[in-house]
Computed example of a mutant assay.
Amino acid sequence: MYSERASSLPHVVAWWSVTTAVRESRILPDGCLDIIWQDGRVFVAGPDTTAQVGCASPGSRCFALRFGSGTGPGVLGVPASALVDQQVPLDALVAPATVRRLASADDPLAALTAFAAGRWADPDPVMVGLASAARSGRPIAAIAARCGLSARQLQRRSNAAFGYGPKMLERVLRMQRAVSMARRGSPFARVSAEAGYADQAHLAREVRAMAGVPLGVLIS
């Protein structure tokens, strides 16, 4: 069972899950990082470049905040590039006493939200615009040009906010759009055209590279 809702914090989604049976889960890259409470353990799931595959035990519970648009690094005090493709115990980043309070909280989601609110720093507005453009399939080069950023400046700020550069962010969020369309029943040829791929073969290569399985297997 999985549920999510908008958090009281901007660009943040609150989610929770309970595992009812042993099954493999495949978590796709999404340009975000998460702070997760799982059965009393609190850790950070950094931004991914490829799918993470796991298998939780029946009865396992998770409560988490998913930080989009580059909001997570401000809360954690580290650039997203330090967390790419990693799961890092939260007490490696903040005071262990704070993490112990989170781990033992009666309402983990409320505790995580209060923790994040107390450390909140407004995200880089250029990176918020960059993420919005990438999610909608608009060219992100226009964002950089409008803000007067050089390619090097854009790369550095994107690395800090998302863990990787703008080209990788575009690839990740394009795949998210494609998978969402395919799950709604769109033919793969239409998905490739509307999501911004050169052709269906390009779609197939990109999904397999980042998800680890073909698109048909992913949505089955």
Rank of each mutant, 00 (worst) to 15 (best):
Q155R: 12
L102Y: 01
D85Y: 07
V126S: 03
V94M: 13
V179W: 14
D85R: 09
A133S: 07
D91A: 14
A95E: 15
L203C: 03
L109V: 00
A209R: 15
R119D: 06
S192D: 08
R119Y: 04
A142T: 08
P139S: 06
Q155I: 02
W120I: 06
W120M: 04
S186A: 13
R171L: 08
V172A: 03
L169Q: 03
A193V: 10
A141I: 03
S132Y: 04
A209G: 05
H202A: 15
L149I: 09
T98N: 03
G196H: 06
G212P: 09
Q155A: 10
S136T: 09
V213T: 13
V126K: 00
C147F: 14
D85L: 07
P214D: 14
Q87Y: 03
L130Q: 10
M175W: 03
L102H: 04
W120P: 01
A178V: 14
L203S: 00
H202N: 12
A133R: 03
P139D: 05
F162T: 03
A116M: 03
D107L: 02
M168Q: 12
Y164M: 06
Y164C: 06
G185Y: 11
A160I: 01
A121V: 12
L112W: 00
A121G: 05
A105I: 00
P125D: 05
Q87M: 07
L90M: 14
A114N: 02
L93N: 12
F115Y: 04
A105E: 03
R205F: 04
L154G: 01
R174Q: 15
D199Q: 02
R119H: 11
A193C: 08
N159R: 09
A144K: 01
M175H: 06
P96C: 11
A117L: 00
R135S: 13
A160K: 05
S150H: 12
V191F: 04
A92P: 04
A178T: 13
F115S: 01
S150G: 15
Y164G: 03
Q86F: 07
D91V: 09
A103M: 12
S192L: 09
Q86W: 06
V172M: 01
P187T: 07
A142Y: 02
A195C: 11
D85F: 08
V207P: 04
P123C: 10
A161C: 05
R101M: 07
A142F: 02
F188R: 06
M210P: 01
Q200M: 04
R174K: 15
